[in-house]
């Protein structure tokens, strides 16, 4: 429950940041996708269910405020959250390389799905252009920002669920 509330709060913060701050500080006209990081990281850290939970909220928020048809973004984000949930088994607290790789793949997946849902269906076929000029730069930028957000998530997790001490001796009273 605590985790859900903190995640919703984080989603709100990331959403507002992405739409109002990062649009101003684009690098060569590309901005990172904070929500993908959040979905990917929560799927990766907490499992498929949390991934989908965050995906539904992120997608729903975007669809309600920006989208014309409700459901498209939810679809994209839920799939990302779900797939990242599978990698939960690989979750190791001190390792940063796998989660960042997951973020990179997730962002590419987001780009591909978005391209299919919004561009391919309107017969914009030049997929290579979109991969080189939008998806890959966005991926790199997203991974860079991902490091920060991932660390914030871990810090939050430590604060919310402090690690319990494991009793070693049999007669330990605290257990």
């Amino acid at each position: 429950m605590k985790r859900c509330i903190s995640l919703i709060f984080l989603i709100l913060v990331c959403f507002v940041l992405q739409t109002s701050v990062f649009t101003h500080i684009r690098l060569s006209n590309i901005m990172p996708n904070l929500l993908v990081i959040l979905v990917s990281a929560s799927g990766f850290m907490y499992g498929r269910k949390y991934g989908m939970f965050v995906g539904v909220i992120c997608g729903g928020l975007i669809d309600l405020i920006y989208g014309e048809i409700i459901g498209v973004s939810i679809f994209i984000y839920v799939i990302i959250g779900y797939i990242n949930g599978f990698a939960n088994k690989l979750y190791y607290k001190d390792d940063l390389s796998i989660p960042l790789f997951a973020v990179a793949v997730s962002d590419l997946l987001y780009g591909m799905l978005y391209y299919i849902c919004h561009f391919l269906l309107r017969s914009r076929f030049d997929i290579l252009f979109y991969i080189i000029h939008i998806m890959i730069p966005e991926m790199i930028y997203t991974v860079a920002v991902g490091i920060v957000i991932y660390k914030i998530l871990q810090w939050l997790e430590d604060r919310l669920y402090p690690q319990q001490e494991v009793p070693l001796a049999k007669g330990d009273k605290s257990y």
């Binding site: 269910k49 989908m52 309600l64 048809i69 409700i70 498209v72 939810i74 839920v78 799939i79 949930g85």
Partner: peptide
């Protein structure tokens, strides 16, 4: 979680159709 995913995806489809068909009625929610 498999079944949850399926349910959500179906829900997405329904929502999409509903929001497309009844765009005016979705306005208050937005």
């Amino acid at each position: 979680p498999k079944y949850v995913l399926v349910v959500i995806l179906i829900l997405c489809l329904v929502l999409g159709v509903v929001s497309y068909r009844f765009a005016d009625k979705m306005q208050p929610v937005r």
